Amino acid sequence: MSYTEATLQLLSPEGSLVENDATAPYLPRVAAISDAQLRDFHRQMVVIRRFDIEAGNLQRQGQLALWIPSVGQEAAQVGSGYAARPQDHIFPAYREHVVGRIRGLDPMRIIELLRGLSHGGWDPAKTGNFHLYTLVIGSQSLHATGMAMGMTLDGSTATGHPETDAAVLAYFGDGASSQGDVSEAMVFSASFQAPIVFFLQNNHWAISVPVQRQSRTPLYLRGTGFGIPSVQIDGNDVLASYLVTAENLEAARAGQGPRFIEALTYRMGAHTSSDDPTKYRDSEEMTFWAQRDPIARFETFLRAKGEGDAFFAEVASEAEDLAADVRARTQSLGSPPADKIFSHVYSDPHPLMEEQRAWMAAYEASLEEARE
């Protein structure tokens, strides 16, 4: 499954603006994006890809238990991530590394999570309402829907004050779209007109299952079946991702109910570091999507606007600095104290946890005595 006639694309694979009836309403908004914002789009995509590659290398060297790459999906994530306002809540799956970074998350929290050093990774209240990664496929769509329904009930949306109105942005993949949780989330969102935007990153593979086997029709049509206005965009086009997500979040904040975006992109690497994609993907497909690389496309666009070598060299240097910093900090990580496992199981102190903590301490002390 690739681009269709319904796919909204503002920036062609060759890096030029697409001008037609479908893009006409968006082109003035493209022109209104500041040069600083455009540079940030590119910077975030380049830096996170370098981080991603470094993290994959660290996993291969035994520093991480697992790594979940996002190479190839940077435009879908950067554009949509920047479209959200500070008051919005974001529910990721487990591959949205750059969205977290945009919201203020230190990438080391992801490293620590996948090294097995933390329960959940971070506090959403301290990371721009960027909620925790969810490895139970599709379940975050229900969490996001519950948050959106709660926001409606407590009056934090559609108040007529755009600077404070809030919405929810929920990410999931093409594989998750076949899960019952996602269908239930759309049922409740549509029924209660919850202020949520479902952002489906269709990277074409649910581990080794191709998207064609999951759906006979484009996935964005699943949203329409629940009465949710839905659109399909070129997910390797950061401009389309940014403007379409911003437009749909504005509608959700204004009380117009849920929205559904399918971003056509491609997972250039493995599903996770435990996967071997050469067993189920052919080189022709890889070549097709490599020619539509979101970073190369956007660099061409920026150079045509006048950005020179100095800017791109600066970004490349920043990416290398982050990679080196992450490597150094990862290698210096120690093991957490054994009793950390009992912390935060309950929101308040709990006698069962204290009992288990005491048992663990006594057991460890007995081992020390046996060694002596």
Rank of each mutant, 00 (worst) to 15 (best):
L27E: 05
P25S: 11
Q37H: 02
V30I: 13
Q61M: 10
F51Q: 11
A55V: 05
G56P: 08
V47C: 10
A55D: 00
L38H: 14
L64P: 02
D35R: 06
F51A: 10
L38A: 08
P28A: 15
D52C: 14
R49N: 03
I33F: 09
A22K: 08
Q63K: 13
Y26M: 08
R43I: 11
Q37D: 06
S70L: 15
Q44C: 04
S34K: 01
R43K: 12
S34N: 04
N57V: 15
V30G: 01
T23W: 02
A31S: 06
P28H: 04
Q44K: 12
Q73R: 02
G62Q: 09
T23I: 13
G72D: 11
S70H: 13
F41Y: 07
S34A: 03
N57E: 13
Q63Y: 15
A22C: 12
R39C: 10
F51Y: 02
Q37V: 08
I68C: 04
F51N: 02
G56V: 11
Q63T: 08
V46I: 12
R49G: 03
S34C: 10
A36H: 03
L38M: 14
L66N: 07
Q44A: 07
V47D: 09
I48F: 15
L66V: 15
L66R: 12
M45G: 10
G62I: 03
V47K: 01
F41W: 05
F51T: 10
Y26A: 04
G72L: 15
H42K: 04
A55C: 13
R60E: 08
D21K: 15
R50D: 01
M45R: 01
L66T: 13
A32C: 05
S70C: 14
F51V: 04
Y26W: 14
A36W: 11
Q37C: 08
A55Y: 09
A65I: 06
Q44N: 08
A22E: 07
I68K: 00
F41A: 01
R43T: 01
P25Q: 04
V47W: 05
R43C: 11
Q37Y: 06
I68R: 00
I48A: 04
A65Q: 13
D21H: 07
Q37M: 15
S70G: 09
R60T: 12
Q59W: 14
R49L: 11
E54F: 01
R60F: 04
A31I: 09
V46Q: 03
G62R: 03
I53P: 05
I68N: 00
D21R: 13
I33W: 05
M45P: 03
V71M: 15
Q61D: 15
R43F: 11
V30Y: 04
A65N: 10
I33R: 00
L64R: 02
A31F: 07
R43W: 07
D40I: 05
F41T: 00
T23C: 04
A22R: 12
R50P: 07
A32L: 08
W67D: 13
D52H: 03
R43M: 12
D52R: 10
T23L: 08
P28S: 07
W67Y: 12
F51R: 09
R39F: 09
